[in-house]
């Protein structure tokens, strides 16, 4: 899948593609049998966050843009899909699409504003814009304020898949995750993704080669927003709830943490990071502030000693082994 876009794919690239394919198969095998071993709702939650983190990683790991406001896309998409399913009575597939569309639409103006600055400013601007969206959601009537939108109907996916059945719901969520994951893989390995990486490495150089870097950055931002929205919309249907938690800045911090822990700029890192953090949350959630402290400690350890993340370190080790 990965070698067709590059006419001169080197042996190393071929090896990478082989590695990606194998890792993907292992991951899919694990997910297919997971509900037999683990509580399916837990895996579905982790899958939604994994897609969210992959979408975020598209922007940070491959575009070099650190957004501290991705909660706005997760949360707004959740509200939009919950509203579409509950108030408009749309079937779940259209409700999810409505959510993703809402996040994409929100991504255009926020992206246009944020890409006007770089680096640290970009992070601060996205954080501030997300806080604005948070207050907006707190005040407008359609989000239900502090209560959120509750008991969202799941309905029938594409007419005949009854999502009230837990097994059906699980495999539909897995299908959505897989579609999103493969789309992100495709984007990263497309010529567009290559230009994005070039911009990450050296923006003035990319400009001098004739690329309109703002257009690429905006496209990456909007794509990332839309895919994060897909995750948020799916999450709202699974949990039958859209609430302020998903729009709050702590959620933006969490997705940064998932990506950092798993490995920024790796294909599988965000998935691993999301599962690790959601598992941890499962055990520490009752302890409230301890969860926050642990999250902070993981940030500190990752930044000081472990910048490649779990998958990044693993890949580096595999590469060393292959070379030596």
């Amino acid at each position: 899948m990965a070698d067709q876009y590059k006419p001169h794919a080197s042996r190393d690239d071929a090896a990478e593609a082989r590695y990606d394919r194998r890792a993907f198969l292992v991951m899919m095998a694990l997910f297919l049998v997971a509900p037999a071993v683990v509580y399916p709702v837990f895996v579905m939650k982790a899958l939604c966050f994994a897609l969210f983190a992959c979408a975020f990683n598209l922007l940070l790991g491959f575009g070099g843009l650190l957004s501290f406001g991705h909660s706005m896309f997760l949360g707004m998409a959740g509200y939009a899909s919950a509203h579409a399913a509950k108030v408009w009575g749309l079937p779940p597939e259209f409700a999810i699409l409505a959510g993703a569309a809402a996040a994409t639409l929100l991504g255009v103006p926020t992206g246009l504003l944020a890409i006007r600055r770089q680096g640290i400013y970009f992070a601060m601007i996205t954080l501030a814009l997300a806080q604005m969206v948070f207050f907006f959601c707190l005040q407008v009537p359609f989000t239900g304020g502090e209560d959120g939108i509750q008991s969202v109907p799941r309905g029938h996916f594409v007419g005949f898949l009854d999502l009230r059945n837990m097994t059906v719901l699980y495999y539909v969520v897995l299908a959505i995750f897989t579609a999103g994951f493969l789309l992100i893989y495709r984007i990263i390995h497309s010529p567009f993704g290559q230009v994005l990486k070039a911009i990450r490495e050296n923006e003035p150089r990319a400009t001098s080669l004739g690329y309109r870097t703002e257009h690429y950055k905006l496209a990456a931002f909007v794509l990332s927003a839309g895919l994060a929205g897909l995750a948020g919309a799916t999450k709202a249907i699974v949990f039958q709830l859209a609430s302020l938690t998903d729009v709050h800045w702590t959620m933006s911090g969490e997705v940064v943490l998932m990506t950092l822990l798993g490995g920024m700029g790796t294909i599988f890192g965000p998935v691993v990071g999301a599962f690790a953090i959601i598992t941890m949350e499962n055990y520490l959630a009752e302890l409230g502030s301890w969860f926050t402290i642990t999250q902070g400690a993981i940030f500190v350890v990752c930044v000081l000693a472990f910048r490649r993340g779990l998958i990044g370190e693993l890949e580096a080790w595999l590469r060393r082994r292959r070379a030596g």
Partner: peptide, 16 residues
């Protein structure tokens, strides 16, 4: 950006 991430983590620890 790593400075931003580190100080964010420290803030979480202190506030927690």
């Amino acid at each position: 950006l790593y400075g931003l991430l580190l100080t964010f983590g420290i803030a979480l620890i202190i506030q927690g």
